[in-house]
């Protein structure tokens, strides 16, 4: 089974990324987590994302393209990155989710990845 771990960070955590004193702790925690999950050999792929201030949201309404500055919704937590992992079941995925540094100030949403679509019959 493949699961995506959606790593939601709080604004405070995001601010720590560039903080003169706290950034070391922030990145240290993430590289420890990334090190552990890499070593387990379960990562399918994953990335960190730049902050919500760099986001642009696109919608098509009544045939018109609407482009808007910012993420799709204003929420307290912001998607800071993700991992897609291959593990046997949800319980194993939750174990990994609980180890992500952002569980303290933010959260991790775990969702099964849709299985690849079946090829149409010839």
């Amino acid at each position: 089974m493949q699961y995506i771990l959606l790593l939601n960070e709080s604004p405070n955590e995001l601010a720590d990324r560039d903080h003169p004193e706290r950034s070391k702790t922030y990145w240290g925690a993430w590289s420890a987590f990334i090190g552990a999950i890499s070593k387990a050999g379960i990562i399918v792929n994953g990335d960190g994302l730049l902050g919500p201030e760099t986001a642009t949201t696109v919608r098509l309404r009544d045939g018109k393209r609407m482009v808007q500055d910012g993420p799709f919704a204003d929420t307290k937590e912001v998607l800071g990155g993700y991992f897609v992992i291959e593990v046997p079941d949800l319980d194993a995925a939750l174990e990994w989710a609980a180890k992500a540094p952002c569980v303290h100030g933010g959260s991790v949403e775990v969702r099964p990845v849709m299985p690849p679509m079946r090829a149409p019959k010839a």
Binding site: M1, P88, D89, L90, D91, A92, P112
Partner: peptide, 10 residues
């Protein structure tokens, strides 16, 4: 079924 919860006595 879809999220594949573990069928196991923890």
């Amino acid at each position: 079924k879809q999220a594949a919860l573990r069928f196991e006595v923890p």
